[in-house]
């Protein structure tokens, strides 16, 4: 198919979503599905717009906890990724421990975080952080471990320190790996935040969903879901844009050399 990037990347997904909504609407009307079981998309969208002033502060709270948790996970992820990517000993000794930590279902940790920090913002940030740091660690370590040995030799012969090599070669060459990981990590950080809010918080979009379902306000619950999806897409594409700006050289690299 030959079509412009705008049609493929923006128009087509929107049209497909719209088609899905129309099918859903028709099905709801044709089979007379109760709005308590599955609300009509039209009703969901109307609720979303009408209740937006009430939903927005909750969504904003979730966005903030996600971003803070994600920032923390970036710092921790880059630190451990750099450590195990640069040192064979650190790799062998820490990797199994990191795998063990990442294997714990994070939902199981939320009650513990609540005991530590009290319900609300604290556990949401911490959950977003612990759920999203592992892909960052793995990708940073991979990027560092694949540095060309000849290049390291050139710098070693110049008596460059390990930090010099990390700063000038390892870190920049890790950027494409880091940004690939960030796209994944931001999405799961968002999920972590919402999960934590649904379990133990009186604020945030996860809590708003929980409240809506306990009040049997299904259109509101679905409106919150729709907002979550939209925010997830926005997060993802913000990081794609950032990636294109920061690591354009890695994509250009795929073009044929003269």
């Amino acid at each position: 198919m030959t079509s412009s990037p705008f049609v493929r990347r923006v128009l087509a997904p929107l049209l497909i979503t719209l088609a899905g909504f129309i099918l859903w609407e028709i099905a709801c009307r044709a089979f007379g599905i109760s709005s308590f079981v599955l609300p009509k998309p039209s009703a969901i969208i109307v609720t979303m717009v009408e209740r937006f002033p009430a939903l927005w502060p909750n969504l904003w709270q979730t966005i903030l906890t996600t971003l803070i948790g994600f920032a923390l996970s970036l710092v921790i992820g880059i630190f451990f990724g750099a450590l195990i990517g640069m040192s064979r000993f650190a790799y062998d000794s820490l990797y199994p421990i990191l795998v063990a930590i990442s294997s714990i279902p994070k939902v199981a940790l939320i009650p513990i975080f609540v005991v530590w920090l009290g319900a609300g913002t604290g556990p949401a940030i911490l959950t977003a952080c612990v759920i999203s740091f592992f892909p960052i660690v793995v990708n940073v370590a991979t990027g560092l471990a694949t540095t060309e040995p000849e290049l390291e030799d050139v710098l070693h012969a110049l008596k460059a320190s390990r930090f010099d090599i990390f700063w000038n070669v390892g870190l920049p060459r890790t950027m494409p790996y880091l940004f690939a990981a960030m796209k994944v990590a931001i999405s799961i950080a968002f999920i972590g935040s919402i999960t934590s809010e649904a379990i133990a918080s009186n604020r945030g979009i996860g809590n708003a969903m929980l409240v809506a379902t306990t009040n049997f306000d299904m259109p509101l619950a679905f409106a919150a879901l729709l907002l979550i999806s939209i925010t997830g897409v926005v997060f993802y594409f913000l990081f794609v844009m950032l990636e294109n700006r920061m690591t354009g050289w890695a994509q250009r690299n795929k073009n044929a050399r003269p």
Binding site: E150, L151, D153, V154, N168, V169, R173, M175, W249, N253
Partner: peptide, 10 residues
């Protein structure tokens, strides 16, 4: 200098 020039692509 080696046979492989290893210029940094960025």
């Amino acid at each position: 200098a080696f046979q492989n020039p290893t210029m940094l692509p960025w």
